Every structure is written in C-alpha cells, then in structure tokens.
Simulated assay, not measured.
Amino acid sequence: MTQAPDFTLNHGENGDTLALTGSLLVSTVGMLDRRLRAVEAPVATLDLGGVTAIDTVGAWVCLRTMADTGAKLVNADDIATRLIEALGKVDDRKPVEELKRLPVWLRVPQKIGEAVVEMGTGAVGVVGFVGEMVLSIGPVLLHPTRVRWRALVHQMELVGVNALAIVGLMSFLVGIVITQQGAAQLRQFGAEIYTVNLVGRLTLRELGILMTAIMVAGRSGSAFAAELGTMKLTEEVDAMRTIGVGPMEVLILPRIMATVIMMPLLGIYSAVLGMIGGAFLAQFTLHIPFLTFLLRIREVVPTYDIWVGLIKGPVFGLIVALAGCYQGMQVRDNAEEVGKRTTAAVVLAIFTVIVLDAFFAVFFTEVGWA
C-alpha cells in the first residue's frame, strides 16, 4: 500500500534538517510539493531515509527543494540518488541567452539572400523532377499496357468532370461582368455593338482558359499536393518503392496526364459558358437577342482565337499538375509541411500560369494571331 508522503523540519546545532517520509510518486507528491515550496531557506540537509518509493517526479521535487533551500542530500538509496543525479544534469534553470538580432540593414539583405538561395534550390529540384518524369514517360510510351488506365480515368473525373459545375458558374458570371462593364464603357462612344467582339475574343483567348487554370490550380493542384504529401508522411510512397513500384509511374503520371487532357476541354467549356453569360445579360441591357449575340460571335471571332485557347490549355495543365505533384513529394517530417506545401503549390501554379500567359500574348501577337 502506498504511504502518503510527509516531511518534518528538525532544528539542530549544525543546521536544520528536512526529513521526507512516505512514497514520492507522481500520484502522491502533489500536496507535498506545495507545502515544500513554503519552507524557508536555508536548510542544511535533505534526509530521504524515510522515503519508501520514489519516481522521476519525486526526484524532481527533491532536486527543486535542494536548489531552493541549499540543502545537501543524505540517506538516499541508490534509486533516489541515480534519479536525482540524472535530473541534475538537465539544468533547466539556466537563463536562456537572448539571441542578438541583426540590424535592419543587415536583416533585409540576409532575407533576400535566403530567398534567392531557396529559389535556386527549388528550381534545381523542379528540373530534376521534370527529368525524372520524362524518364518515366519513355517506358510507358513503349509499353502502353503499363499505363494505369483506371487511375487516369479516375483523375480525369476528379480534375474535369467534378469541376464542371464550379467552372461553369464562374465563367457564366465572368461573362456577365465583362458584358456589363464593356457595354458601360463602349456606350460613351456609341459602340455598344462591339461588346460582342469584346466578350467573344476575351473569353476564347484569355479569360476562359486563364480563369480555368486558376480554378484548377486551387482545386486540383492543392489536392495533388495534399494527397501526395500525406502519402509521404504515412510512408506509403516508401512502401511502394520497397515492393518495386515506381511512385512516378503510379501516382504522378496519371495526375499529370489527366490534367493535361482535361485543361483544354475545360477551357473551351469555360469560354462557351462565358459567352452564354454575356449573351444572357446583353438581351436585357443591350436589347440584343440571345441567338443574335451568339451568331454575331461566330462572325467576329477569328478561328485562330480558338486555337490560342487550345494551345494554352495543355501547357497550363502541365504547369498546374507539376506544381501540385512536386510540392506534394517534397513534404518532410510533420503534418505542418502538408499545409505549407499545399499553399506553395497553388501559389507557384497560379504565378507561373500568369507569367506564361503574358509570354503567350506576346508570342501570338508576333506571329500575327492578335
């Protein structure tokens, strides 16, 4: 039976002695600890001769009492001595040295340098990841039976089919906004009829595929990063490598192929819904009949505008999928990394897509597709 701990304070010629008795265990030492904190220093010795049992928490109470009162340990058995000596080596009462903070004119260049180094390391990692992907595509092209068709179709459903509702609604509303704002500006010059040109060309060339890419980056790119990052944390990826299955071929290629295939289709779908949204609003604000608006688009929009959107689609899809898969495979250590890498995947994908869209705009203008 566990004996409740207690203490007595004995006065002597050589100083006071604090004698502990009973079991100094985590389950019993709570009230004793509060009473010991009230003992006034100094105390010459701490006598553990009456202690029947002790654990780490009890040893810590003894060590703290010795530090507070200046007492020396006497009559302790081997277990108590070893515990108190071990805890004494871990001195958590030393003041933590305050780190010297660099002045602002040194901190700013330091942060910029760290960011540049991180960008360089990331660029090297992306190039290596793309190289690994290219090496994995070769055997798949030579042996089409190695394509994970079920995984590919499943990812096409997740990336494309499941995104139809949100992409369609977004595009429809964007088409309404373009029509309303464009008509308000063109009305000043009596050129409201050219709202049809504005809506048709803008949705097919730019906003249709660009808004779709941003939506897919936030929806599917983040999902890729989170899924692969979680698999890295749970060591599923390492387990696949152990049994001879390549993660690149099984996990990454189906996601990349599905996004590349579905992005141009979603882009055209988005452009069509945008034009329908514009025609819907034009019927009420510009008094242009719905079908007349759509037929007018067919007359004023050149065919190469459709090709511009179709060419951008696979490139944007590749960027979004690469960003999500790469960041997901970089997850290390803990669950916090999953959140950070997911955020980084979305930011990287959207930034790269917008930069590439600017290059595409210049390129198509130079080749005469303006």
Rank of each mutant, 00 (worst) to 15 (best):
V159R: 03
L99C: 07
L106M: 10
N14I: 06
M248P: 05
V96C: 00
K72M: 04
M262I: 05
L295C: 08
G339T: 03
M248F: 11
F129V: 03
N10L: 15
V147D: 09
G160N: 02
G122W: 00
S136F: 10
V29W: 05
T52N: 11
V237N: 07
P5V: 10
V90Q: 09
L318R: 01
L291A: 14
L164Y: 02
T8N: 15
R82C: 13
M119W: 07
F189C: 04
L99Q: 15
Q283R: 11
G324K: 03
G277P: 05
V199H: 03
F280M: 13
P5G: 15
G277S: 04
E118L: 08
L281W: 09
L46T: 01
M119N: 08
T17V: 15
V174A: 03
G368E: 13
Q110F: 10
V174I: 15
G274C: 09
T2W: 11
V74Q: 13
D357P: 10
A361R: 08
S136E: 13
L348A: 12
M257F: 13
L207A: 03
T179N: 04
L356E: 06
I178T: 05
N334Y: 09
L32K: 05
R93W: 14
K312I: 03
P103M: 00
Y326D: 01
L83V: 10
V245K: 06
M156H: 09
A4Q: 14
A282K: 01
F351Y: 06
D305I: 09
G267P: 02
L356W: 13
V26G: 04
T17Q: 13
A358D: 06
H11V: 06
L207W: 00
Q155V: 06
D77H: 14
M248W: 10
V216Y: 00
L106S: 12
T343K: 12
Q330T: 11
S220W: 01
M240Q: 12
R296A: 14
W307E: 11
G12M: 08
I311C: 15
E236N: 11
F172K: 02
W60Q: 15
M329F: 10
Q110C: 04
V245N: 05
N334L: 03
T65F: 04
F290C: 07
E98I: 07
A345K: 10
A370K: 12
V117M: 07
F7E: 15
G138W: 12
N197H: 05
G120Q: 07
M156D: 03
V29Q: 09
V124K: 12
V116E: 00
A358F: 12
L202A: 14
P95R: 04
F280K: 06
Q185M: 10
L202K: 00
S222V: 01
I137P: 03
S23T: 08
L265E: 00
Q327S: 11
E366F: 09
G30D: 08
G309H: 11
H287M: 14
E118T: 12
V134K: 05
D77V: 13
P144W: 12
E206A: 12
R255N: 01
E192P: 01
L83T: 06
E40G: 01
V338L: 07
P314C: 07
V57K: 10
D47L: 07
I276T: 02
T212R: 00
I268F: 12
G12Y: 14
I350S: 02
V43K: 01
T8F: 15
R35T: 09
D78P: 09
A358W: 12
A321K: 02
